[in-house]
Design a protein around this nucleic acid. Structure first.
Lengths: 203, 203
DNA sequence: TACAGTTTTAAACAACTGTTTAACAAAATT
DNA sequence: AATTTTGTTAAACAGTTGTTTAAAACTGTA
């Protein structure tokens, strides 16, 4: 909102984000980033001291935004069933808008472990969330089956993220064009909550 | 079973597989591969003409093995419910034994699309499988709810692959050590089939 | 043993990488 | 207006990369 005209630093950041997301850390070249930002290569090191620091600042920022959205979703004060529908709906849209993020985060994970997750205290965010409490309480009251809430969280996340992450492969298998891929993902907004809820309510 | 003593070419292939899986194509260096194989760097180019061809031969091989296992699983002639339990059980073990493969395949996908999937005709493998037929027929008979079989396949795959792929992050969130991570995944062998089956049977 | 083919080696090559330099331009400060 | 600070540039630097070379060691064969 009312953002200033993008200065050089911002131009580099945006270009770098695109290039890093598409090619990964090693695959992305500083000259490529500079060209994408329409800027002299020396300027990249002028504003960010090194490729590594440029990468880190971008990765943190993007990931923090990612986590931020998650916090909001997990803590909305709506009943459990409605909540799950909402989470799936909005989380799906978010991942659709940032399709390369999950693969990028998971690739990065194999290099540096869960460092950024730890920094942002993602554990507390999840386990301290209202959603987490809802699952525990509903389970204690016997409204839903007794289960580790983390199993549910992972199931929901995996169900949403995996098909989007594997978009290219999935589109080939289903003979999808862009639109039918979207339809397939859109259909999951109904399937996933139903699957989770029938499971939680049964047993 | 009675494999011959590994010759130089094989030694390089095995080292390269490890290094490529861990560091990706750009991240893996020929000198690193040669060192891991305890071999002169020139030999890598002597047996495989280039880094790219070395990578391709390994990737194809590994991926073909991956697909091969899948074919067997999908075509076993057991009843649908038992089949789903078996698929989840054995597919989980297979991914556990090749933890880096999914991330690797999905990373590769962003570079070359679904080329290898197309080569191996994975679409026909899935849609021509006995499992696919079982889902369609059970659905037609009204034994299970009407649903696109691909939605089920993707849900099962995502549920299995995602937590293993995100192993590092998951272990941090759950405060897992190696053993409790295994337990968590092991527990999913029961959860996933139950979730899928209750969903298919309801509605 | 001599010879032809294959395998292995150390060294070099050229291209590319991230990074730095030193000069120049623009903007801000005095 | 003079001067300092900030932003930008082309060029170079040193290290790494994938790849090639040319000679050596090894293998089997005549």
């Amino acid at each position: 909102m009312g953002e200033a005209v993008p200065d050089t630093e911002q131009k580099i950041k945006e270009a770098a984000k695109r290039v890093f997301l598409e090619y990964g850390f090693e695959g992305a070249k500083i000259r490529q980033i500079a060209e994408a930002a329409d800027v002299n290569i020396a300027l990249v090191n002028y504003y960010f001291r090194s490729k590594e620091q440029l990468f880190n600042s971008i990765y943190r920022e993007t990931f923090a935004e990612f986590v931020g959205k998650m916090v909001v979703l997990l803590n909305e004060k709506t009943p459990l069933e409605v909540k799950i529908w909402k989470i799936v709906d909005r989380y799906t849209d978010f991942i659709l808008d940032n399709q390369m993020m999950p693969a990028f985060i998971l690739t990065q994970q194999r290099k540096e472990g869960a460092a950024f997750f730890r920094e942002l205290d993602v554990r507390s965010i999840i386990q301290g969330s209202y959603f987490w409490k809802q699952l525990q309480e509903a389970s204690a009251k016997g409204e839903i089956r007794a289960i580790d809430p983390l199993q549910i969280v992972i199931s929901v996340m995996g169900s949403i993220i995996f098909p989007i992450m594997a978009g290219g492969v999935l589109s080939y298998i289903g003979t999808f064009d862009e639109q039918s891929f979207r339809d397939f993902i859109e259909a999951r907004k109904k399937i996933i909550p139903e699957m989770i809820m029938t499971y939680l309510k049964s047993g």
